[in-house]
Design a protein around this nucleic acid. Structure first.
Lengths: 94, 94
DNA sequence: CATCTAATTAGAAAATATTCAAAATAGAAT
DNA sequence: ATTCTATTTTGAATATTTTCTAATTAGATG
């Protein structure tokens, strides 16, 4: 179920963009929501799905909720992709 | 749009299983359909989506349509995942 | 060319996913 | 304790996806 959750989570462009935003540093929900033309409620829904897929973790600080990226769950996805026999050296540059 | 199509395609378990079936050798649509408790029409719909994502190619032979895996489109997905800074050496075994 | 086989396309129904407005929660600040 | 701020949850509307049955296509075979 784990990989299925991961892939479902990243199948949505909004959720991928959220992961991109958290790449360098964690951010509070409001700051994340501000990047989209969506209501905070909608972004909160996407955060919930990412959280359920363990792609992000949350951390309270003051009255903000900070979200952190957890890219380690991609391991399983990478293994599956490589099992399909993708050509070339993994992560080969150019 | 390419990566979006790829990720959408592999977000469905039926379509992932189809890719798994094609891992070692190409197979005709009927043989693929037989692996699922779905009608041939439904499996054909999934094949269409995989084709649109360029994850498979089709090839006519007699009156069968053989499908082949094309895992090369995963390159872009892999790049994105690595850009998120996944820990460890790419494709590190254990 | 009539027919059979393999598979797809069309159209509609059912199931899921996404979105928003309004209400609720949780903690901080006054 | 009341209020303010950040965020989530709820419930309903809309959009998208998946599935099926029935009809169609494309090529092979008699």
């Amino acid at each position: 179920m784990a990989m299925s959750d991961t892939l479902k989570a990243i199948s949505d462009p909004v959720r991928r963009q959220i992961l991109n935003l958290l790449k360098d540093q964690s951010k509070p929900a409001g700051e994340i929501a501000a990047q989209f033309e969506l209501t905070p409620a909608t972004v909160s829904y996407h955060l919930k799905l990412l959280k359920q897929a363990h792609l992000i973790t949350e951390r309270r600080e003051k009255n903000f909720i900070y979200y952190d990226l957890n890219a380690s769950v991609f391991e399983e996805v990478l293994s599956w992709i490589y099992s399909l026999g993708i050509g070339g050296t993994p992560h080969d540059k150019k």
